[in-house]
Design a protein around this nucleic acid. Structure first.
Lengths: 230, 230
DNA sequence: GCTCTCCTTTATGCATGCAAAATTAAGCGA
DNA sequence: TCGCTTAATTTTGCATGCATAAAGGAGAGC
């Protein structure tokens, strides 16, 4: 998981934080079908808390955009449609541009070594064809790159956009060849980062994002026709 | 105020929405000093509600970044320091770039006429030297421009960044000559928009943002030394 | 006079309870 | 059998209450 605030202690100090993180994880694992009422009572039982803190957590997640509150009709996991997804990729492009321009200049030694390590692992995993691990490491790689831009606001925005995309992965069957392409693009990204080339890095990140977006969007129409889950 | 969701009805249907908007406004008006405990009880009395919905609203605002929750020690209005502000301006630059590139292409006739109207009003107000009205209209102008880019995600991100900057205006004495400069830059922005020149519009927006940021940041050190308020 | 400790007061965090709205089920007529 | 009306059930939204942690203050010790 992404560590944005230093306030995020090992067991997430407050009940509120634990609930927000917990429900977010449940949604990201796809264990809460979208578009249907989130069972407040069930979650209360699951987390062993009363409705008050649970509802507070849901309001916070709503403010994040992950759930939608329908007055008097409960909360639902915000449905992901093609429009929303394409807007998210578009917004992410703007952020990636920024990350490229600034990470190339601001990344410190710790960032660079961490990124090299992740990159190395990614290439091996891509070679093995382990898609699940690739997705995980890929997330970590891009989060670290976002952090290298040294702007907490951007990091937060990026993280929220990534959450939605991670959620989309649940319902979209990924094209396996995309992983190989992605790994190739990552070589270019690392090359640009190593020589600290802002324009090149930004350009490669934007193109990487576009390629991922296209791979996603081409599958959206096909996959979303089928029943979403359960 | 900014209308992001169509769900924002005149009196903001739900109590929750009204509370979030209401507290946000109070903070934006500077009626809640930052860094000291937000008086839960007082707000309850003010809005005539019990602590439960009020606390839910505070959690939502915390998720927005406007307030900070300190476990067992109440909520405070997130303090604005120079670092945070400069990060916000930097992030806004990334968003402005996007807005420029896309608004130039996607703005429809309604957008263009609305922007022309706002622009016209802005120029008059700048000429009169009415700073308060200028700030208000300027906000509306940029919000509308953000909307013209036709991407709800960007619009939301932009709006949240703007909120923080609007808050900063409360504690920073603005340089009056900056308004005149700003009005001039707006002429260029409108010119680029009229001929639908994406690169030029983006460039002008970014430079406009940078100039505003510099005007702000130069005042931050000086002004923030003094007592913040009350 | 200063600091540390203990006690009082206040505020927070969460559970519970109750009224209103929505959902579901049942009954009725066509 | 299907659709509509109405009653029963569930769920939501908010208020209230209670246990606990923090803040404030008084008094003892140095």
């Amino acid at each position: 998981m992404i560590q944005l605030d230093a306030s995020d202690s090992p067991d997430s100090r407050t009940l509120h934080d634990r609930l927000v993180a917990g429900i977010r994880d449940i949604i990201l694992q796809g264990d809460l079908p979208e578009s249907i009422r989130i069972p407040e009572a069930q979650l209360c039982a699951q987390f062993q808390v009363s409705r008050t803190p649970l509802r507070e957590a849901l309001k916070a997640l709503a403010s994040e955009g992950l759930v939608t509150l329908r007055p008097n009709r409960g909360a639902i996991v915000t449905p992901l449609d093609a429009t929303l997804l394409s807007e998210i990729f578009e917004a992410k492009q703007a952020i990636e541009q920024f990350i490229g321009m600034h990470a190339a200049i601001r990344a410190d030694v710790a960032d660079l070594t961490a990124l090299e390590d992740l990159h190395c692992a990614l290439q091996q995993v891509a070679h093995r064809g382990d898609y699940a691990t690739y997705t995980l490491l890929n997330s970590q790689f891009h989060d670290r790159l976002a952090a290298s831009a040294q702007n907490k606001q951007i990091q937060k925005i990026y993280s929220k956009l990534q959450v939605q995309i991670r959620r989309a992965r649940l319902v979209i069957n990924q094209n396996p060849t995309r992983m190989q392409e992605s790994a190739l693009e990552h070589e270019g990204i690392m090359a640009a980062l190593r020589i600290r080339a802002p324009l090149d890095l930004a350009d490669r990140l934007v193109r990487h994002n576009k390629a991922t977006a296209e791979a996603f969007m081409s599958k959206v129409q096909a996959d979303r026709k089928r029943p979403v889950r359960i």
